[in-house]
């Protein structure tokens, strides 16, 4: 059964004339990791926020079509209800710190307290989430005294503690240094091994190619393509949509090195090595 079902989703921000999302329809299955790519303003963040109900409940605006996430219809559910099914992590780790708690541990408890999770269960869930993200050694630190990567992992832990079935990440590492970024991706990888369905909007195409099993290319609020990374990154017209394919794909395209029997170019380092060595 599909975890996410989107049917003819259209959305326009209240202060805007043009559609930010223009007639999107697709499905996502359990355990998938979907990459969302496209130029600035393509609608990636808007789509991410449509999964968790911020679009339309927070912004309002004109909304059409239907989004169903793990059985809940977004339009008919509150953001708080949806928070237990689908979690979102934003770009800026700093603004996701509540600023009302004095330790990492309390910070992770914030959402659980709001949603009325019983105290015993709360403690189990916090311990689990901190451990999963490798944050247990910082549990008594002040939330603002963390590095960017640690802060972002704390944000993910806060969301994971709510036990969502789907995790949406909107450029989670674009404000982090390479090490912080690597920490976050390793954590996301572990979540996938736990069976989490993940949606990732990201400008780093190498990361998308390495971690995602399908890639959605957006432009002007429309879906241009939604297929395997190899298929999307092998498109000859990618630059028209403001996307530069992974460096491995570019090299192999120049050398015209395709995998045997495949119409697509390699998209990861491993695949590129394999193909190039075989020549």
């Amino acid at each position: 059964m599909s975890k996410i079902r989107v049917e003819h989703l259209k959305y326009r921000y209240p202060s805007s004339e043009k559609l930010a999302l223009d007639d999107l329809s697709f499905e996502v299955d359990e355990g998938e990791m979907i990459g969302i790519i496209g130029r600035n303003g393509a609608g990636k963040s808007t789509l991410c926020q449509a999964f968790v109900g911020l679009v339309p409940h927070f912004y309002r605006g004109a909304y059409g079509g239907k989004v169903v996430v793990s059985g809940l219809e977004v339009l008919k559910s509150s953001v708080s209800q949806l928070a237990r099914r689908v979690g979102i992590v934003f770009q800026n780790p700093f603004t996701q710190v509540t600023g009302s708690k004095w330790t990492v541990y309390e910070e992770v408890a914030f959402g659980l307290e709001n949603l009325g999770v019983p105290r015993k269960e709360m403690i189990d869930r916090i311990d689990y989430a901190l451990q999963l993200l490798g944050m247990e050694k910082y549990r008594d630190r002040h939330p603002f005294d963390l590095s960017g990567g640690q802060m972002q992992r704390m944000a993910i832990a806060s969301v994971i503690a709510l036990q969502p079935e789907i995790l949406v990440l909107d450029e989670p590492t674009s404000q982090l240094d390479p090490q912080g970024s690597e920490e976050v991706f390793r954590a996301v990888h572990r979540l996938r091994e736990e069976g989490m369905t993940v949606i990732l909007a990201e400008h780093n195409m190498e990361k998308i190619a390495r971690y995602c099993n399908r890639v959605m290319l957006l432009d002007g609020g429309k879906i241009i393509d939604f297929a395997s990374p190899a298929s999307v990154f092998s498109r000859a017209d990618l630059t028209r949509y403001g996307v530069v394919p992974p460096v491995y794909t570019r090299v192999c395209r120049e050398l015209n090195a395709k995998r045997e029997g495949s119409p697509h170019f390699p998209v990861t380092l491993e695949e590129a090595c394999e193909v190039l060595k075989g020549r």
Partner: peptide, 8 residues
């Protein structure tokens, strides 16, 4: 505000 909203 967005981050607080999705944390109930």
């Amino acid at each position: 505000a967005l981050a607080l909203e999705v944390r109930g």
